[in-house]
Write a protein that binds this DNA or RNA. Structure first.
Lengths: 205, 205
DNA sequence: ATTGTGACCATATTACCAAATGGTCACTAG
DNA sequence: CTAGTGACCATTTGGTAATATGGTCACAAT
């Protein structure tokens, strides 16, 4: 039996197609330069030399284009943080890096790519599938670290893993969710350190 | 030497005056029924049977009226939570109640008095003095609980008190800051419990 | 002095209409 | 059949003129 891959937005048109990439490229350019709202779909069409209608052969909406770009951003952040985590030896250090990494990466998204923030905000409020998937991957990374720490004896083993993971996720959430981070600028310097400290104390065997 | 009381908004006109209370009462009524933005200062004037100009003898701005009301709300919340905390015997239970209490009270503010949310939001974003004071009082309450727990031997004593308090405050913040709570509705049921658990684990001696 | 106001000003908000935009579809070219 | 489009529609958005609002002040009544 074939496993049915449920694409939340049933992709329109050929999934692997040069034009699809052109659209995403043009959109990335335009969205980050002029902003999501200020960019009209016909602007993207003009940029790649096709008509607006053709774009809708590949994406079912403007938001779908935004989703694609958003997914890329989130992938980038995740990759970067995973790399930083992998560099560390000790599970405790991994956890610290995860926290700091996500905070810094999200912060950068908000400042450096200020124009992309609109998308990130919509994505988070409306819970686009790319965001849901991202959150799940973050939780997965967290669980990996926790389990490693449990196996090595660095972390306590009494509390159920799922509970620990859920709680730590809640602690971290305000620092990698753009909507929340926005209201925590005053704390971004110390928060990752202080909270990592607290979390690690809670994990001590 | 007289202690100079620094009122952040140098109160205008007689501090204790019947009309002042009438204004606050009318504003509470109007703001919570029609919303802060939709209420004009002249509406309040009409409601209490004076001219708009007279209101400005008591408050230096519409926002100042909002501040007064906001301060009342926050006082109420604090009183309620303090009562719930006082009921508990053990420091750990106090901490749990504090967390749960603030979450529920803030949530109620957002739902029951939906119209007042506008004020709360402005107050939080613009860091009105009533909010700053409130946050300080919350942190004070937290420190009280922590010290009691340290004295009774329920909580660890190695980590500096200020550091512990700061970290726990950061954990709680998303649940009594209306701006943040707004983005955490999905978690308000489990979060206080799970996070209290984590925090208490981090405090174990 | 205290209580109280109408007239006034600059800015913010509303109401309105024209232009722009997201999105579809029947259709053409090869 | 695939690649591609102009013309079209409903809804948003932008711009603007009229109105409403926050806030002040000189002044009146007690």
């Amino acid at each position: 039996m074939k496993k049915a891959v449920i694409t939340p937005q049933p992709a329109r048109g050929p999934v692997d197609h040069e034009v699809r990439d052109q659209i995403v490229a043009a959109a990335t350019e335009h969205f980050s330069r002029y902003g999501y709202e200020k960019t009209a779909v016909s602007d993207l069409a003009k940029a790649i030399g096709f008509s607006k209608a053709y774009i809708y052969k590949f994406f079912e909406s403007k938001q779908a284009i935004g989703e694609a770009i958003c997914a890329n951003c989130l992938r980038e952040i995740e990759t970067e943080v995973r790399a930083a985590v992998a560099e560390a030896e000790l599970p405790s250090e991994k956890l610290r890096r995860m926290f700091k990494g996500f905070t810094e990466a999200t912060l950068r998204l908000l400042f450096r790519d200020r124009k992309l923030y609109e998308i990130a905000a919509s994505a988070a409020t409306e819970r686009w599938s790319s965001v849901v998937a991202y959150e799940e991957r973050v939780q997965a990374l967290l669980k990996e670290i926790l389990q490693e720490g449990r196996q090595s004896g660095d972390f306590e083993r009494k509390t159920p893993l799922d509970e620990t993971a859920a709680a730590i996720y809640l602690v971290m959430r305000p620092y990698f969710n753009p909507l929340l981070l926005q209201h925590s600028f005053d704390y971004t310097d110390e928060a990752p350190g202080q909270l990592s400290g607290l979390v690690l104390r809670s994990l001590s065997p």
